[in-house]
Structure formats: C-alpha cells, structure tokens
C-alpha cells in the first residue's frame, strides 16, 4: 500500500520549480494544502487542477510520476469515499436498498472529497518530486531555526529526517530480499486468518529491525569518520537564496489562495453559476 508513495523519490529535471528555494516550496505547499480545504465548488476544484497541471508542466515532470503517488493512497481514498457515500443521508434520495441509502448530496460530497484528497496528495508529491530530501531537510531546518534559541536541536532533527528519507529505498529493497528468502523457506504471507498473517510477518520484521540497527551503527561510524559534529559552524554547499523565480512562485500561489477565498466567501454565486452552466441538471 505504501509502495508507490513517492516520498524520497526525487525526480531530477532541470526546471524553475526544481530550482526554487526549498523554504519557499515548503511554505507554498502548506498554503496550497490549506487552500484546498476552502474549495467548495467544482469551479474551485477546476482552478486547483489547472494550477497543479501548470506546475507539473513547468516542472517538466511526467504526469505519471504524480499519478503514481496518488496510486499509493488509492485504498484510503476508496474507503473514505464509500463511508461518505453511505453515511450522508440528507438531500434527494437516488438509490435505496435495505439500509443502504445514496443521496444526491452524498454523491456530490463524495466526488468533492475524492477530488480534494487527490489534489492534496498530488500537490504534496510535487514538493517531494522537485525537491531533494536534503534540500527539504535543509529548508525545514532553516524554517525551524528560531527554535534553536529554545535549545531544540534543530540541526540534528534535520539530519535525522534527511537520513530517514535517504534510507527508504534501501529498506524497501531489503524487505523484498527478506520476504523472498522466507518465502523460499515456505513462509506464506497471503493466506490464513488475520492473526496468522500478522504472525507470518515476524520472520520479516525481526531481521529487518536487526539489520537496521546494524546499518545505523555502521552509518554512525561513517558519519563520525567524516567529522560530523566537528564544528558548530557547519556550512552548506547549497545556498538557499530568494530569487526572482521564488517571488513569482509566491505571487502565483498567493493569487490562487486569494481567488479561492474570494470565490468562497465573497462571490459564492460565481462558483455555483459556473457549476450549473457545466453540469446543469446533474447538480
């Protein structure tokens, strides 16, 4: 289920989006995510989708790479959708069978919820796809740096995050190897009761843990050998600078956010009318 979530799966390309300051990207992603929760009309979702597609094009990413991260949460989306569909009981009843009721409001809420989740994950994955984990960790470190004043070890936390991201592919590979080896000894992971299945995971999880500790140990030596913690004045090869393109990016996302807020609170009629023009009687 988590296999295709693209965390730590940086997609290298030479684009303006890739070169944006990671701090800017982090804050703008946050703004985008908050913005999505204010979207109410199909028109608003269309606006969001247009923004998203535009970013993907500018970032020179293949659409598939974004969809891949959506695939990772498909099951979650499906379950939430089903719950929504059957739990909402107000509005015009479309189908009724025994205790199951599907209403028009339910259908629309569900569609919007799915749109919201998909746009949310796609937007968040854009951050991971265009920003290296190190840049991300550096960006977070920089954003959190005021916390260092209250003795929070911001630098170590940032290092831990970037290492965790770096080891995700390694651990996946290792898990696959262990699963193959235990299967070869007759273990089965896809039959029996839930209890039996959980128990079947023990021969995978224990070696995975043991090996991770060993890796952590070796990594610690390797980091020490390369003078980690040699000085409080650690420098950075990659300097984050606020460029003109960062300014443009901020402007774009801020206008999007403003548009969404305007559409929702000041001109709600516009969204409703446009939705009606497109979908007509379906609403």
């Amino acid at each position: 289920m988590f296999k295709d979530v693209t965390f730590g799966q940086y997609y290298p390309a030479d684009s303006i989006v890739h070169k944006l300051d990671a701090r800017v990207k982090l804050l703008l992603t946050l703004l985008y995510v908050v913005g999505i929760f204010f979207v109410k009309s199909y028109f608003g979702f269309m606006l969001t989708a247009v923004l998203l597609v535009a970013i993907v094009l500018v970032a020179k990413l293949p659409m598939a790479s974004v969809l891949k991260s959506v695939r990772g949460i498909l099951l979650l989306v499906l379950i939430t959708a089903l719950i929504n569909l059957f739990m909402i009981k107000d509005g015009e009843v479309l189908v009724q069978w025994k205790i199951f009721v599907i209403t028009k409001t339910g259908v629309h809420t569900t569609i919007k919820m799915v749109l919201r989740l998909v746009l949310l994950i796609s937007g968040a994955s854009l951050l991971a796809l265009t920003t290296t984990p190190v840049e991300l960790a550096d960006g977070l470190e920089s954003l959190m740096s005021p916390l260092a004043l209250v003795k929070i070890p911001v630098r170590d936390i940032a290092m831990i995050m970037s290492i965790a991201l770096r080891f995700i592919p390694t651990l996946f590979e290792e898990t696959n190897k262990i699963v193959a080896a235990q299967k070869a000894r007759g273990a089965s992971f896809d039959s029996g009761s839930i209890f039996a299945r959980v128990k079947a995971l023990i021969p995978v999880l224990i070696p995975l843990f043991v090996n991770s500790f060993r890796r952590a140990d070796e990594l610690a030596f390797a980091m020490d050998a390369r003078c980690y913690n040699a000085t409080d004045k650690r420098t950075k090869m990659k300097k984050a600078t606020f460029k003109f393109s960062d300014f443009v990016a901020c402007l774009t996302v801020l206008s999007f956010f403003t548009l969404i807020l305007l559409e929702r609170y000041y001109f709600p009629k516009i969204g409703i009318n446009i939705d009606y023009m497109i979908f007509g009687g379906l609403l």
């Binding site: 235990q182 021969p203 090996n211």
Partner: peptide, 23 residues
C-alpha cells in the same frame, strides 16, 4: 532450496534450533 546472498541477514528466531526448524 535457495541460499541467497548474505543469508545470515535473514535469520530471525531467538534460538538456532528454532530458526533452522522454520522451513
């Protein structure tokens, strides 16, 4: 019988006997 590369990294049981008995 498959002996993969570095097969010692797939040991899991708390005793040698239990690990060998797994198959």
């Amino acid at each position: 019988g498959m002996v993969f590369q570095y097969p010692e990294y797939q040991l899991f049981a708390d005793t040698v006997e239990k690990d060998i008995a797994f198959g």
